[in-house]
Design a protein around this nucleic acid. Sequence first.
DNA 1: CCCCAGTCCTGCGGGC
DNA 2: TGCCCGCAGGACTGGG
Length: 284
Amino acid sequence: MPELPEVETMRRGIASIVGSRIEDLRIPPSPLRPITIKPPLAEFRRRIVGRTVASVGRVGKRVVVELDSADRIAIEPRMTGRVLLGRPPDGKHLRLVFELSRSQPGRPAEQLMFWDSRGLGVARLLTPEEFDRHLGNSKLGPDALEITADELRRRLGRSRRAVKVALLDQSVLAGVGNLYASEILHRARVHPAVPCRRIRPIQWSRIHAAMLEILHEAIAMQGSTLADGMYRTVDGESGRFQEFHFVYQRAGQVCRQCRRARIVRIVQSQRSSFYCPKCQRWRG
DNA sequence: CCCCAGTCCTGCGGGC
DNA sequence: TGCCCGCAGGACTGGG
């Protein structure tokens, strides 16, 4: 499931479209229900055709394509979405095709595609005002790679929520999802169900440090491709960070850290959490 | 402020 | 071989 490292890998993978002109936007024929795009296709197309890609960025778990009109295209892959440049895995789940002109003479024309198996993904075209409203500071917390340890503690230190649940709250910090939240807390040696207000300053420092380490390592490995094989890089390659998972989807297996206890799965807020009962004591 | 349940959606795997 | 069912969960919404 694309979280910050996977979305950042997608962003880097399509960075070559900067300078290209958008010639068309199509929704390919498919028996599946079309994904959500806002505004609807006709207006979306009218506002982007003829515009040039000014930059390709990322906000939390969204890829953000900024145009020379100052409008931005925000693509949310959610569970199974993939951003591609041509060559989708199949046509059935191909949801959007942005036809691009060649950005420089001699370079081939490109097609920016959004492919999504389950179709939970969303694409939005946002004016600067809408961008602030949807992806601005009041809606989303600081990026997980930017937030400081003090800011993290300031935002969560008095909360009664379980720390694992709180780390998933995108209004607290943007980019951490279910997989990396479990991995971060394992490296920080903090039990996922501990209320934030019971976490000591030294533990917040460990959580923050573990978060930066893991996210940077995962980006370097081009993200995590799980057993379902759903996530791929723009080039169709698997990520490699799954080889370095210590707890995620490892319930019942011996902990790679202590080599003694077995990983436990619990459900928090209707999502699976994984932890080592020996490495992650309630009072770390 | 926080929590919970429900919704969207498709592919996959277990059970029979 | 096939069919039903549960499960995966990010973002959002409505009710408490």
